[in-house]
Amino acid sequence: MSDMSDVKALVFDVFGTVVDWRSSLIADFTKWGSSQGISADWTALVDAWRRAYMPSMDVVRHHPERGFAKLDTLHRQSLEVLIEKFRIIGLSDADLRHLTLGWHRLHPWADSVGGLTRLKTKYIISPLSNGNVALLTNMAKFAGLPWDLIMSAELFEHYKPDPQAYLGAAALLNLKPEQVMMVAAHNNDLEAAQKLGLKTAFVPRITEYGPHQSRDFKADGEWDVVADDFGDLAKRMGC
């Protein structure tokens, strides 16, 4: 473990690292579909929706002339395509909105709230997520996430792994990059942060993608901290 004495803030990837998006959405949509009499392969829809996540942001990243689009908008656009693909018929605009807002209703991993609460006693803690501000705020209320503030790609109009997101977070906190630690279950997120001078912590979430998990089973880089879960991270960070 590296010297952490200068670290003042921990910023967190959220989807997959703090919250269990896959199980949350599948359970939410299955229950909702049953109540509405709507039959669909919700598991397949959720998995396909997540696969559309990075490509949708890449369109924004590689076509700046189109302007920035927040994640709620990208999620809705992807959903409309997938509804056609999976031949789910009879959905109203209100139904599509309800499904899109499912990303606001994600449940935390079992160790997330307790670990964050401990870390908050010593450090500034915040999401640094591609989710938009409203999404992250509503999720925090729903899941009981004790953030000190909400930092989102929307604030910087750049999605991770663009440098502007990581450096923008440090600047908002009036901290040097090396005073900020990026916490993620995704090695590529940490790699991008480390190249910019941020400290890094890896916490594995080996069931994030369910049976489709193909990476991030372990730390693949020389990260400053490798922890078993958020409770272990809090312990290693002196909380």
Rank of each mutant, 00 (worst) to 15 (best):
2 S>W: 08
3 D>M: 15
4 M>E: 13
4 M>C: 14
6 D>A: 13
7 V>F: 12
8 K>V: 15
11 V>S: 09
13 D>N: 15
13 D>W: 11
13 D>T: 07
14 V>D: 07
14 V>W: 08
15 F>R: 02
15 F>G: 12
17 T>D: 11
26 I>N: 09
33 G>P: 08
39 S>Q: 07
47 D>P: 12
48 A>I: 02
49 W>I: 12
52 A>I: 13
52 A>P: 02
52 A>T: 12
67 G>P: 03
67 G>Q: 15
68 F>E: 07
72 D>K: 06
73 T>H: 13
74 L>P: 02
76 R>Y: 00
76 R>M: 10
77 Q>L: 11
79 L>K: 08
81 V>M: 08
82 L>R: 08
82 L>D: 14
84 E>D: 07
84 E>G: 05
85 K>Q: 06
86 F>W: 06
87 R>G: 01
87 R>V: 01
89 I>C: 01
90 G>V: 10
90 G>K: 06
92 S>W: 04
93 D>Y: 02
94 A>P: 06
95 D>A: 07
97 R>G: 11
99 L>H: 03
102 G>Y: 15
104 H>Q: 09
105 R>F: 08
107 H>P: 00
113 V>Q: 11
119 L>I: 15
119 L>C: 07
120 K>I: 02
122 K>W: 13
123 Y>H: 09
123 Y>T: 02
125 I>R: 15
125 I>A: 13
127 P>C: 04
127 P>G: 03
127 P>I: 03
128 L>G: 09
130 N>F: 13
130 N>V: 15
131 G>Q: 04
135 L>V: 02
136 L>R: 00
138 N>L: 05
139 M>K: 05
141 K>V: 10
142 F>M: 11
142 F>Q: 13
145 L>A: 04
146 P>C: 12
147 W>S: 03
147 W>F: 15
148 D>R: 14
149 L>D: 06
152 S>K: 14
157 E>N: 08
160 K>F: 01
161 P>G: 05
162 D>S: 07
170 A>E: 08
171 A>Q: 13
173 L>Y: 08
175 L>A: 02
177 P>I: 09
180 V>M: 09
182 M>W: 09
188 N>V: 06
188 N>T: 03
195 K>S: 15
196 L>T: 06
196 L>Y: 01
197 G>M: 06
199 K>E: 07
202 F>S: 13
205 R>W: 12
207 T>P: 01
207 T>G: 01
211 P>G: 10
213 Q>L: 01
214 S>A: 06
215 R>L: 09
222 E>D: 14
223 W>K: 05
223 W>N: 03
226 V>S: 03
229 D>C: 00
230 F>Q: 01
234 A>H: 11
234 A>K: 10
238 G>P: 11
239 C>I: 10
